[in-house]
Design a protein around this nucleic acid. Structure first.
Lengths: 213, 213
DNA sequence: AGAATAGTGTCTCTCAGACATTATTTG
DNA sequence: CAAATAATGTCTGAGAGACACTATTCT
């Protein structure tokens, strides 16, 4: 194929101040876009996606997952636009001040976006919510050690609903994917909370209920 | 990016003679590959995928879903190979004799495959099995009207396990995604079976059980 | 002592899973 | 009437969901 520009974009989620946020780059005037770049000849799609937000995190390990590949026909220029989109999760503590002109936007208050980037973010959010229900992806937004209240709060922010504390604890514990540490965290107020950590040997994906059959 | 060849491949599943099969094209000697072709400038990814098996089916509507996008660095040629893979389902009755040199292979007895096509098929199969459990994708392999035994058999072949007849019927019926027709089918032997049809207004995706609520 | 947050147990109701017999047709 | 396939109902156990009080720390 003659002229195909292949770009890789990343939807980067993080939790700031009780809202789920997405990192966006300015496009022009009041128009924003997802961070992204053209695929280089010497890299895989994944390493290109990694590069796209490397400066945004101090973590070696980052949750990164391929989301979807979009194609757009730009009729006026007769150009074919192909974009491979990833989504990534960054814990608040591993985040740096956004470099350049990048800014964190709440998923509930997005600015005007380039191309179909709004649709892409909506899809990424749906996928994140969906994954939360059958895998252990929620930990990726938290520091290595966390309290159960923090974990529950993360779930609540992403799902956009309140959860029952006792049911949450019961299930997350008997799922066997986190383990106690010897540490506690105190906010200076109230009873200090026990810290937990994700069990690296845990089976993160759990079988979903079978609907059919 | 300078030289990127962007191909679209399709994993086409169908049910023949009690086995789940994949349509493959000969590559060279004893090596086979997934049907595919380079993306044209004037088409979207999806229409390119559709084109890749249009001659394989007489159906207007075909179940087609994007699977994953793979990138391969071919070190010796310094070329970048990007392949967007779709998977498709064709009902046995809508299938034609494979054109050209294409052949249907049982997923349990695949030949030697080009590049990472074995991995791709394995992933497509995993996805198909997974989808079967929370969506109504099984109908896409059957004619418009089908008996419950045929439907159950489809599930059994794909999942590779026997299912309980009563539980299967109970759940598939109370899920409300199929409806009775007035027709019956008889094989000439045994009691004729009632024919059902997929309800086009049905909500095919059902909520999965929440693991971590 | 009061404020703040952490931590804990029970009951009910739904639904998945196991299981065997009767009904209808054809030759 | 024999053979073949279709169709149907019940019981049990696991777990999701609703719900309120006690425990620990700090000031």
């Amino acid at each position: 194929m003659a002229s195909c520009s292949l770009n890789v974009h990343v939807v980067i989620f993080s939790l700031c101040e009780d809202t789920l946020r997405v990192l966006l780059a300015p496009e022009e005037q009041t128009l924003w876009q997802l961070p992204g770049q053209p695929l280089q000849q010497s890299e895989t799609l994944e390493s290109c996606a990694l590069r796209a937000f490397q400066e945004q995190t101090s973590r070696r390990e980052v949750y990164l997952e391929q989301l979807y590949t979009y194609s757009n026909l730009l009729h006026h220029t007769q150009k074919q636009l192909v974009s491979v989109v990833y989504f990534a999760l960054i814990p608040a503590n591993a985040r740096r001040e956004p470099s350049a002109e990048l800014r964190w936007f709440s998923v509930n208050q997005l600015p005007s976006l380039k191309d179909n980037h709004f649709e892409i973010i909506a899809y990424a959010l749906r996928r994140l919510r969906y994954k939360l229900e059958y895998s252990a992806v929620g930990f990726e937004l938290l520091p290595e050690e966390f309290t159960l209240s923090e974990l529950q709060h993360t779930y609540e922010v992403i799902l956009g609903e309140k959860l029952d504390k006792r049911n949450f604890r019961r299930r997350i514990l008997q799922a066997g994917i986190i383990e106690e540490t010897k540490h506690r965290r105190t906010k200076g107020e109230g009873r200090p909370a026990r810290l937990y950590r994700y069990r690296p040997d845990a089976v993160a994906e759990v079988k979903a209920r079978r609907l059919f059959p």
